[in-house]
Design a protein around this nucleic acid. Sequence first.
DNA 1: CCAAGCTTGTCAATCGGTTGCCAATAGCGA
DNA 2: TCGCTATTGGCAACCGATTGACAAGCTTGG
Lengths: 356, 356
Amino acid sequence: MTEEPGEQDRGDGVESAAPRRRAAPTIYDIAHLAGVNPSSVSRALNQPGRMSAKTESRIHDAARRLNYRVNPMARALPTGRTNMIGLVIADITNPVVFSIVRGAERAAAERDYTLVLAESEESSDRELKVAERLLQSVDGLILATSRLDDSAVTRLAEAKPLVVVNRVVDNVPGVVADVSRGITEAVDLLALFGHRSVAYLSGPERSWISHARWRSIKERCDWSRMEVTALPTASPTVEGGRGAAAAVRSSGCTAVIAYNDLIAIGLMRELGMAGLQIPRDLSVVGFDDIFGSDFTVPPLTTIQMPLQRQGARAVELILDALKEDSAPRQSESGDLLTHLVVRGSVGPPRSRSAPH
Amino acid sequence: MTEEPGEQDRGDGVESAAPRRRAAPTIYDIAHLAGVNPSSVSRALNQPGRMSAKTESRIHDAARRLNYRVNPMARALPTGRTNMIGLVIADITNPVVFSIVRGAERAAAERDYTLVLAESEESSDRELKVAERLLQSVDGLILATSRLDDSAVTRLAEAKPLVVVNRVVDNVPGVVADVSRGITEAVDLLALFGHRSVAYLSGPERSWISHARWRSIKERCDWSRMEVTALPTASPTVEGGRGAAAAVRSSGCTAVIAYNDLIAIGLMRELGMAGLQIPRDLSVVGFDDIFGSDFTVPPLTTIQMPLQRQGARAVELILDALKEDSAPRQSESGDLLTHLVVRGSVGPPRSRSAPH
DNA sequence: CCAAGCTTGTCAATCGGTTGCCAATAGCGA
DNA sequence: TCGCTATTGGCAACCGATTGACAAGCTTGG
């Protein structure tokens, strides 16, 4: 309380041994140094050109000299804008989300937004809680691998701009990749090799995207006059893939398209341990092209999703919604195409190895 | 300006087509509903028991009825606490950081903290910028894979509690795993198989942890009377491992310990393509036990780092520093042990295959 | 029966920036 | 040189919550 109360003991509450923190400079410090009113500082910093060049540069100099950074919390209060975007994912160790996170982080950072991350650990209860908590601190929310039902998503979307990834919810913008191209390529390749019977190792029953993939696969297989059946898996993981091996073998199919790469990898490993050879005994196609899918033997042929671009696009949609209030852009898959990455896990079926 | 100015047009600035957002309830709404003063609401919510049970429960009821969540920005202003922790990483697609992120996210969420993520894209300039930006909005900062030099780290640590992971910087708390146990196990296993000459494929020249690993490997090899040399790699990636294959072959060593799994995997793939067999022609040990390190053929034997625990520990250190100002705990590796995960990439050397 | 001691709740200042409104100033033409 | 308008900059309210100081209400003891 020597001179400027509140300047003296700011920083951290207790004042004993802890390393002394230097308090961050404020616009008041700048105003003092530049000899102007704090509000002028705010103006100079936020609306360049609305002030005499001389004063403006004096203020900027002072700010630079003090190494000033705006306090995002203080700014957020009156404006309601935090410059943060929330990203909720089910499981951060799922390689599928890495790319989404990266794409989102990059797109956000580029526009000076900060990404806030939260994990729902595959629980829809936790997801709701986490999303509600995040919602308070961010300008918009991305649900990357949501386990919520549509109504909950819709309700969340009422509070702040919200975008879902790889999912379609009425009236909520979504970023969905167009799987048809990749699937067409995959099915066509199998057909070319002479496969006549294919199985789809499906994902979680409640997964919108798993059904979308199945529909697309079914359609293309029908078109190619191939038999196709869906086989369930216990979980969309390596373990789930392992567990499905028996069903695959007894199904009599000669090729498999898996809901994701983890399942595909699990299946290959299990069959490999049982002495089968891939692709001689079974052709396997994965989905996503995750990190490590080329480490396997043989390397996995897989349908690559534009996950990083999807993450970036999700951020862009949020920012769009924030900027103007044009009608919320609906799920558009324009440039979000998938394509087949051909590696070693697809070949001719055992019986007839000649094409066609 | 009909009645309560500022109540009418809150929500979002522009008011045309955009989906109407409902404004979040405030403590004033609660106070109004419960018929008390806003400050009583704050007290009832934050200091339970300091108020008549009756009033308190009335306030809680009102809060629940309005589905009230505290506005973190508004709270952060007077308290200086944001309940957010920043995590800066070099490259989010590096599998090593997944586990750190997960550990940190879990530990943070458990204590009602939110994790804020930023990527430096391997650039120390960007890292500094990003860290300074984050510093404004968080209560503490974790540098997981920092490319900054010590002085920059020290300077950042002056502003807010800061923790580095897998690195030691004077006067800055760090979370460093004790590599000696894993390395001892690895070197001993190689010795047991009869290897006499080992190479270390090192990481980035400026990486503290790479040197630490090298020192530990050198020490144990000396102890075992094994020859050991360090071989440089161009980068700590699969590509870097590939590029080092030639040097490894001409070095005459029979076993390799790589700075990380990516290098090990790259090396194995390159050698495999050249017709060598692992472990017959070369034993390979990786570091980290990343996702996918068991997808390779043979599966990679690797020294597992407790990355997830390290991430969690980093958060705990921040929280400690925030709570009391006990002397900042210095890098302690107590329970952060490494250990060898034995898989298929280590075997007896070609020449003499009998142990010892 | 009254004063002292606790509870319980209210007031008001504050955190750091933003912004509408208005006064002071500068610039301009006549 | 004067008066008018276009700029420029300052004042003050406000965003939502926290918190120290204090008043009102209650209990309790002398």
